Amino acid sequence: TRVETATETAWISLVTALHLVLGLSAVLGLLLLRWQFPAHYRRLRHALW
């Protein structure tokens, strides 16, 4: 049971790290898009909202 718990903890930390990385890359990508294509971003936002 001790090994299982350790594996579970490792998986949880791995998944958390993955989610953090994905979230950060998504935010960075959005910022980059907004910085590179302001007109396109505004049009996209206008279409979405």
Results as ranks from 00 to 15, higher is better:
T1K: 12
T1E: 11
R2A: 12
R2Q: 14
R2K: 14
R2V: 11
V3S: 02
V3W: 02
V3C: 02
V3P: 00
E4V: 11
E4D: 08
E4L: 10
E4T: 10
E4M: 15
T5I: 04
T5D: 03
A6T: 13
A6S: 14
A6L: 08
A6G: 12
T7Y: 12
E8A: 01
E8L: 05
T9W: 12
A10N: 02
W11Y: 13
W11F: 10
W11K: 02
I12G: 01
I12K: 13
S13G: 11
S13V: 11
S13E: 01
S13N: 06
L14H: 03
L14N: 02
L14K: 01
V15H: 04
V15Y: 01
T16F: 07
T16E: 00
A17N: 02
A17K: 01
L18H: 02
H19I: 01
H19Q: 03
L20T: 07
L20A: 10
V21T: 11
V21G: 06
V21Y: 02
V21F: 14
L22Q: 01
G23R: 00
G23S: 10
L24Y: 05
L24T: 06
S25H: 05
A26P: 00
A26V: 10
V27Y: 09
V27E: 05
V27L: 13
V27G: 10
L28N: 07
L28I: 06
L28R: 03
G29P: 07
G29F: 13
L30E: 00
L30M: 11
L30F: 12
L31N: 00
L31K: 06
L31Y: 13
L31D: 01
L32V: 11
L32G: 04
L32H: 00
L33K: 03
R34T: 08
R34Q: 05
W35C: 15
W35A: 15
W35I: 15
Q36L: 11
Q36V: 15
P38F: 10
P38W: 04
P38S: 15
P38R: 15
P38Y: 14
A39Q: 14
A39E: 15
A39V: 15
H40R: 10
Y41E: 12
R42M: 11
R42L: 13
R42A: 12
R43S: 12
R43G: 05
L44A: 09
L44Q: 00
R45D: 00
R45M: 07
A47Q: 07
A47H: 08
A47P: 04
L48D: 08
L48W: 06
W49I: 09
W49Y: 14
